[in-house]
């Protein structure tokens, strides 16, 4: 609304509405990020605290050590495959729910795990995968020796897919609900056979939801440390575990900050590519 107001009045209104929130975001989001950037350029003090001299040595160390590159590679790899598995499970499910007579109930069944505490969802898989767990009870029932399923990469995959599946299904469902099905008829009418018609007329309509869902799974899956910590314990180290370790027992905040900046740079790169194709409305789909 462009209403008549003196510059002073307008300034007062902006300060009253935007002021407190903007102040908060600058103090608790922007400044901390800058601190991480500064600390990542510092060195490790005798007690682990960051101290001068400043330099790029943490980054040099990160990118010259195959161990760290392997961690980055593994994080991306596990994140990517988990996300693809989530899509494989979630994409058809969203269509099934949207076309079901009981869609409200089914949606509720997706929402319940979505709102169930994150740690409980991870913990549940320990109960399934542990030595005396559900899966081994099943295996031994066939007379086979119990398997060592924990810690394992398999368990990390399963729990990651499990944890983030609802994050994908809900935005995709929103996209499927808005599908203009008359386009499918138009494609048939113009001679496209069923599979072709789906990919020409329906799939593109789900693409924005699919991309948003992809990021909603991929970003936290790459950044997680809890899942790998509890289910991959020691065996599977992701970049999140590396950061936690530097701020915990390894006591090297400067190096941990550098690792954080690397993770953040990867996320921002992905987001930048996404925003370029989807625009700001695409960013809103991530909420």
């Amino acid at each position: 609304m462009r209403e008549a107001a003196t510059p002073a009045q307008r300034l007062r209104r902006v300060l009253l509405t935007v002021g407190p929130g903007a102040f908060w975001l600058v103090l608790f989001v922007l400044i901390p990020t800058l601190i991480v950037l500064v600390v990542s350029l510092m060195s490790r003090g005798s007690l682990g605290q960051p101290v001068p001299p400043f330099g790029l040595h943490n980054y040099v160390r990160f990118f010259s050590d195959p161990l760290f590159l392997e961690i980055i590679g593994r994080s991306l790899w596990i994140g990517l495959w988990s996300t693809l598995l989530v899509i494989l499970l979630g994409y058809p499910l969203a269509f099934y729910i949207a076309q079901s007579r009981y869609k409200e109930v089914l949606l509720l069944l997706v929402v319940i795990p979505f709102f169930t505490n994150f740690l409980i969802r991870v913990y549940a898989w320990i109960v399934v995968f542990q030595k005396e767990g559900l899966l081994n009870a099943f295996i031994t029932a066939f007379g086979l020796p119990p398997a060592e399923l924990l810690p394992s990469t398999l368990a990390v995959y399963v729990a990651t897919v499990y944890t983030y599946l609802p994050f994908f299904v809900l935005p995709l469902y929103a996209a499927v609900e808005r599908i203009d099905w008359s386009l499918l008829e138009a494609a048939y009418d113009l001679g496209a056979r069923p599979v072709r018609a789906f990919f020409e007329a329906i799939f593109p309509q789900t693409l924005p939801g699919l991309l948003a869902g992809f990021l909603l799974v991929f970003i936290p899956a790459v950044g997680t440390f809890v899942i790998a910590d509890l289910l991959g314990g020691g065996k599977v180290t992701l970049v999140g575990n590396l950061i936690q370790l530097q701020f915990g027992s390894a006591q090297n905040w400067a190096f941990g900050s550098a690792a954080s900046m690397v993770l953040m740079a990867m996320v921002l790169l992905g987001l930048w590519l996404y925003a370029r194709t989807q625009g700001e409305r695409g960013l809103d789909r991530l909420v």
């Binding site: 975001l25 989001v29 922007l30 990020t33 991480v36 990021l215 970003i219 936290p220 790459v222 950044g223 997680t224 440390f225 999140g240 950061i243 936690q244 954080s260 993770l263 953040m264 996320v267 987001l271 991530l286 909420v287």
Partner: peptide, 9 residues
């Protein structure tokens, strides 16, 4: 930023 940055960061 708070929406997209990984929790750990």
């Amino acid at each position: 930023v708070p929406v997209v940055v990984p929790d750990v960061v």
